[in-house]
Design a protein around this nucleic acid. Structure first.
Length: 571
RNA sequence: GCGCGAGUAGCUCAAUUGGAUAGAGUGUCGGUCUCCGAAGCCGAAGGUUGUGGGUUCGAUUCCCGCCUCGCGCACCA
């Protein structure tokens, strides 16, 4: 890609001027304002500062050694020492033509593929998936898609909650209160009912609580009946998970739940004890972090005083397993921000055994979804919002709008489009904000279908397709471009930044960069669309404009697909 | 108390290794469909980036203090 080629030439020039300089961090980025140029580097100012040099003089010296004439107009020094690069039209056209021929789509696969394990979603067995799972699921899926697109090896692993104390109560409920017909009709609702029933009974009667405890112990010690019930609960839950994932278009390579690691927990705990990472404290096995200021006052329990392991141990066992099985360069955990302390602890414990390991451990955390009142998002009656209901409502709301805007479409088609629009809106609303901030869930905003929303992007796509339909265009024409109108040029140059954005998403785990890029792309297209009639134009102008339409559609489609969002030819 | 976040336009949010005049959407007001889909486009108004210092050519970004809010902090996950 052009910015990278410019960057390499810049590095070479700097090495000539300053042979000992570390050029790794000298980046060429898009200009914040096109009036300055197309790309800039501000790194020379930092370099000059570190060496107490005059920044403008350094810039001049570098330019003297810099040869980018095949792509750029003469390079300019601006302000305190910015270098501004303006692309030659021929260079832009060459990029467009290459894309038109299918040689690339403005990004390149990495030359150094990495292996990344992405751990996300992690719903609990016997409970409905709810709104609390949506961000992890959508964010994780998007990161996995982005990394794959860039050519990395990605392993997605759903670490489901299929083990734990809740099964004591569930087993009591299953044995005492199970309604087979209800289970048949809606297994999750029935299991949730069982849990709530027994949970209430436990609060009222200590004997029930004791029974639950005993059922749990039986399960843990391998009781055949309890194991069989437990397996059935998992299977029923998995069916529900699969249905939701099917709707969301999310796939996992593996589903290794907590129970998978049970056989390893004892050994993990013993190993930590033996290596002195953890020691006895108040009857439990605990890891202390006296050398880490942030964790000094926050020890982690490895093994409870009753001998049972907890989730810290499970996560360490999981980590070890992933390392041995896949040898990842990076493991990405996509969870709620409230687990920050937990992962700090897990990572710290892990580092004590693998100090030299280059594996990058990333806790990609996100904020809470709040209701319009600023409090945790709940239904009117105070229940957590079930994911299935939320997706249903998104589709219903989208269907209403479509029926109104486009009543002549057959009902079947309307429903299909409503599905694409509704799910797209939900996903986009989740991916657009900075993941670390809480965001307020608002149907009206996400389905407003105006402003920076998925429907706006999908709408831009349908307008392109509409041009192709009207014009009877197939394939998109010849790869020849003559850019003249400013709207054509802005659109064309925006394509070129697709790869930069994808790489930023992968590096920082922030899909909102891609959302904003696509929103800008749709905006550039809309202005082009207003100013530059396509089908009415002729000859080279028409070929150029059709080509820009083709590329807009391709980038939009690829970009949205990377967000996990589908497009439709009509809406 | 300790730790992690957040505080930017009326509201919801951006801001790419510290970079150029802090940008969008929404809402408000105004313009724009005999023209490829107006779910669009154009324009106006709207800011002491919580607050006080510091670092420097340059700070929403880095450092320190303070204020407000959210979350977490040994046997739940």
């Amino acid at each position: 890609m052009l910015h990278r080629q410019i960057e390499q030439r810049l590095h070479a020039a700097v090495r000539t001027v300053l042979p000992d300089a570390d050029t790794e961090s000298l980046l060429v980025r898009p200009c914040p304002d096109t009036k300055f140029g197309d790309y800039q580097t501000n790194a020379l100012m930092g370099l000059a500062k570190a060496r107490k040099m005059n920044p403008r003089q350094l810039a001049a010296d570098v330019i003297a050694q810099l040869d980018v004439a095949e792509w750029c107009e003469p390079v300019e020094i601006a302000g305190a020492g910015f270098l501004n690069f303006r692309l030659k039209p021929a260079a832009v056209v060459q990029m467009l033509a290459g894309a038109q021929r299918g040689e690339h789509l403005f990004f390149e696969k990495t030359s150094r593929p990495r292996t990344a394990v992405v751990d996300f979603s992690s719903p609990n067995v016997a409970k409905p998936m709810h709104v609390g799972h949506i961000r992890s699921t959508i964010l994780g899926d998007c990161l996995a898609r982005t990394l794959r697109l860039l050519g990395h090896r990605v392993i997605t692993d759903n670490h489901i909650g299929d083990w734990g104390t809740q099964f004591g109560k569930l087993l009591v409920g299953w044995k005492r209160h199970l309604n087979r017909a209800a289970l048949q009709a809606n297994p999750i609702d029935e299991m949730e009912r069982l849990y709530k029933t027994v949970n209430a009974a436990c609060d009222a009667d200590a004997a029930v609580l004791e029974t639950a405890r005993q059922e749990l112990v039986k399960l843990q010690s391998g009781d055949v009946e309890n194991l069989s019930i437990w397996r059935e609960m998992i299977a029923l839950s998995q069916r529900q998970f699969d249905e939701i994932y099917g709707r969301l278009g999310v796939k996992f390579d593996h589903t290794l739940g907590e129970s998978f690691y049970n056989p390893r927990l004892k050994a993990v705990a013993e190993d930590l004890r033996a290596r002195g990472v953890a020691r006895e404290s108040e009857g439990a096995l605990v890891a202390f972090f006296d050398d880490i200021p942030a964790l000094k006052d926050h020890p982690a329990i490895i093994q409870k005083s009753d001998g049972a392991a907890n989730y810290t141990t499970t996560d360490i066992a999981t980590l070890e397993h992933r390392l041995q099985t896949w040898q990842p360069d990076e493991i990405i955990y996509v969870t709620d921000g409230r687990q920050q302390l937990h992962f700090h602890q897990v990572f710290a414990i892990f580092r004590r055994g693998h100090a030299a390991l280059p594996t990058r451990l990333a806790h990609v955390w996100f904020g809470s979804i709040l209701g319009e009142d600023g409090k945790p998002f709940k239904t009117r009656s105070g229940e957590t919002v079930k994911l299935a209901d939320l997706l249903d409502e998104a589709e219903e709301r989208a269907l209403k709008v479509i029926a109104e805007k486009n009543p002549e479409l057959p009902p079947e088609k309307q429903r299909e489009i409503a599905r694409i629009i509704g799910l797209g809106a939900v996903k986009y609303a989740d991916l657009l904000p900075n993941r670390q901030s809480d965001y307020i869930f608002s149907w009206d905003k996400m389905l407003a279908l105006q402003g920076n929303t998925a429907p706006y992007l999908q709408y831009a796509y349908t307008r392109v397709q509409s041009i192709f339909r009207k014009g009877g265009v197939v394939g998109g024409g010849a790869p020849e471009f003559q850019l003249t109108a400013p709207e054509e040029i802005h659109l064309a140059k925006h394509f070129l930044n697709f790869g930069i954005v994808l790489e930023a998403v992968a590096a920082e785990h922030r899909p909102n960069y891609l959302c904003n890029y696509l929103y800008d792309l749709a905006g550039h297209f809309a202005r082009f669309y207003e100013a530059c009639p396509v089908l009415k134009s002729t000859d080279a102008e028409r070929a150029t404009r059709l080509g820009l339409c083709v590329l807009t559609a391709r980038v939009l489609r690829q970009g949205l697909d990377t967000l996990g969002i589908e497009v439709s030819d009509q809406m």
